[in-house]
Design a protein around this nucleic acid. Structure first.
Length: 639
RNA sequence: GCCGGCGUAGCUCAGUGGUAGAGCAACUGAUUCGUAAUCAGUAGGUCGCGGGUUCAACUCCCAUCGCCGGCUCCA
């Protein structure tokens, strides 16, 4: 064999003998720490891959995105090996790396228990200590099928059988464990330094509820113990921000067994927070040319039939009967808006019409999906339907996108954008779907927002642009959405008279900004860890007296603040100053207004900010100015 | 809906078949305090609900409701 030339990470060039394993080049790449794989001409490969031709050879560090992927994938194999050793009858299926970790799905006669998890983890450590080499093998498809059939691994057989007959597949072998896998993997189990099994769950084979439920084990792995520890720490922090926990602690809301699952009961502070958010929304909508409307909670069945909900959304709806007439409890707000549009003859001069409703909807959600405020059976949408001419469509979509990014900016959220196309269960013609999808896509291109296409994920009546916001813990939530609809205007025979004196069909946009007020509040609680900015906080200032002497002045201050629309609470209890401060602090109230004899005599207050800063004695009006400025600055980008 | 786990005082949690416990909160009293918990006392539970096994069930079994972690679905 001759020589070949390679270019390494640092862009230097080497001449090597062809067939040399990449790992041999490592000594020339001291700048790469802890390599787990190698990229040969952009193909991710095992470290031992032989280099047979001129190539760019880059070593992949364990802490890079690709490196973590390889590492975690190898740990998922390690786990599968441990499981097969402990439970030989278990069948393996698939075990990929995922964001923050990995999982492996098993078909087990007996479900795993938390105690099994400890045993598996211990076995994994033992296998790491054995430092088993991980070897790649390739074989023809049919041979691989035979191999896995002989080992009783029917799921692997199923996967390979779907490949073309001519295909060669790769296997990875460590000790007596063999798995079908594309790779790459670490060179040996001893390279695994830090991992933890984190959870146990059921998961359907191939993600379909028609298939058998498998046992999934979740875990995570990192290049070293320190970063694993840091990650576990982060998860602990996230738990402290859990909106269900904070919701109770801050006395915002509760969910009562007696009332029903997935139904939110707002306590006074939660109801106030919600109203602040809703007032903000109404104001923003009125500024942007929307009109406030309101539809009923129940509408006759025939109307839901006409809209297509009965055929396409029935399993999510509740029904009731009144004087022998059937009614459907609304799961969406569009129907009443259709009626409002049709309430008079419309001229092109009126368009676009933008109907906005804080509409409370009820949807039957399967019991297993309910989750705090983020997945409920009754929620309120900041919903609007825009009816416009086809010519206005593009501009209207652009306006909405701007509206959404403005509002998200107020809360400090970044958004990722997805375009969702026609789903299997849907109504309308191909032409309409194409027009609608193109309208959304062209608007996205105009405003140069980066987006991904999510095929088949649209609403049953039209395609949509989804905005997934990212909270302070980098978790992604679906909130805002824009849906383009040619179908409902058709079904409800909406029309307007154009400049030509002829009847035309308007186009409709469905859209929400916050999405569900409930979900959005849940996200806000976690995003701010319960410490709401002053403009949102249900209690903006807690007045705290030091002793009984100052009660009269404290009441006076309270009255002054309330009169100026400041949300102030009064704490006159006979408790120590420290005690009262601690309590206000734990309630995460933005300002505490301390009143002792000094303040009383000076006819002032001494604000203490939530950050612990003592702002000193000042007149009440100075504080009002300071608080107003605080609120204004949070919202200034909208003015 | 499916898989697994869990339901004990308002909250956080002890309690492995033999008389239901702690801390915080609540209530009462004392204390009147200068920037993150003053002290003492009192009261509070048909152990989620319904069946069953047992001389005896918070504890074991079945069913049901709810919650938690996932899966499927989704604002």
């Amino acid at each position: 064999m001759g020589n070949v030339t390679v270019i390494l990470n640092d862009n230097t060039t080497r001449g090597i003998a062809a067939g040399l394993p990449a790992v041999e080049l490592l000594k020339d790449c001291s700048d790469v720490k802890n390599p787990v794989a190698v990229r040969i001409d952009n193909r991710l490969c095992d470290l031992h891959t032989a280099i047979n031709h001129d190539a760019r050879v880059e070593f992949v560090a364990a802490d890079s995105a690709d490196g973590l992927d390889v590492l975690r994938h190898s740990v998922s194999h390690l786990m599968a090996q441990a499981v097969k050793t402990l439970f030989p009858d278990v069948k393996v299926t698939i075990g990929p790396s995922i964001v923050d970790g990995f999982y492996y799905d098993f078909d087990a006669m007996e479900p795993f228990t938390p105690a099994d998890l400890e045993k598996i983890e211990a076995k994994m450590h033992a296998l790491v200590n054995q430092n088993l080499p991980i070897r790649r093998r390739e074989m023809p498809r049919d041979e691989a099928i035979e191999l896995f059939r002989s080992r009783g691994e029917t799921y692997k057989v199923e996967i390979i059988s779907e490949l073309p007959a001519s295909e060669t597949v790769s296997l990875y072998e460590q000790g007596d464990f063999i798995d079908l896998c594309r790779g790459p993997h670490l060179p040996s189990t001893g390279k695994i330094k830090a991992f933890k099994l984190t959870g146990l769950a059921g998961a359907y084979w191939r993600g379909s509820e028609k298939n058998k439920m498998l046992q999934r084990i979740y875990g995570t792995a990192f290049p070293d113990k320190k970063s694993l520890q840091a990650h576990l720490q982060l998860i602990e922090e996230a738990k402290k921000r859990d909106h269900r926990k904070l919701g109770r602690e801050l006395n915002l809301f509760n969910i009562y067994d007696e009332a029903g699952a997935g139904l939110i009961v707002y306590h006074p502070k939660g109801a106030l927070l919600r109203r602040i958010l809703e007032d903000f929304e109404v104001k923003q909508h009125l500024r942007r040319g929307y009109q406030l409307v309101k539809g009923p909670q129940i509408l006759k069945l025939e109307l839901w039939e006409k809209s297509g909900h009965l055929d396409n959304y029935r399993e999510n709806m509740y029904f009731t009967e009144v004087e022998e007439k059937q009614y459907g409890l609304k799961p969406m707000n569009c129907l009443a808006h259709m009626l409002i549009y049709n309430s008079s003859r419309r001229s092109y001069k009126e368009l676009p019409l933008r109907f906005f409703e804080l509409g409370t909807v009820n949807r039957h959600e399967k019991s297993g999906v309910l989750h705090g405020l983020t997945r409920v059976r009754e929620f309120t949408q900041d919903d609007a339907h825009i009816l416009c001419t086809p010519e206005q469509l593009n501009q209207e979509i652009l306006n909405i996108i701007e509206f959404i990014t403005d509002v998200m900016g107020v809360f400090g959220f970044e958004c990722a954008v997805e375009l969702s196309t026609r789903p299997a269960k849907s109504i309308g013609t191909d032409v309409d779907w194409q027009r609608a999808t193109e309208a959304l896509e062209s608007a996205l291109k105009t405003c140069t927002l980066p987006y991904e296409v999510n095929a088949g994920d649209g609403a049953f009546y039209g395609p949509k642009i989804d905005f997934k916001l990212q909270d302070s813990l980098k978790r992604s939530w679906q909130c805002a959405t824009i849906q383009c609809d040619f179908v409902l205007p058709e079904r409800f025979d909406l029309s307007y008279i154009g400049a030509d004196g002829e009847k035309h069909r308007p186009v409709m946009l469905h859209r929400v900004i916050l999405g569900s007020i409930e979900r959005f509040i849940g996200i806000l609680i976690e995003h701010y860890a319960g410490a709401f900015p002053a403009w949102l906080a249900p209690v903006q200032a807690q007045i705290i007296t030091i002793s009984d002497e100052q009660q009269a002045w404290a009441r006076d201050v309270h009255a002054q603040l309330i009169a100026q629309d400041i949300r102030a609470d009064l704490d006159l209890r006979n408790e120590s100053l420290n005690f009262k401060i601690r309590e206000a602090q734990m309630q995460k109230i933005p300002y505490m207004l301390i009143i002792g004899n000094n303040e009383m005599l000076a006819r002032g207050i001494a604000p203490r900010s939530r950050t612990g800063e003592n702002l000193g004695c000042m007149p009440v009006d100075d504080f009002v100015g300071l608080l107003r400025q605080d609120c204004r600055s949070a919202l200034q980008m909208l003015h």
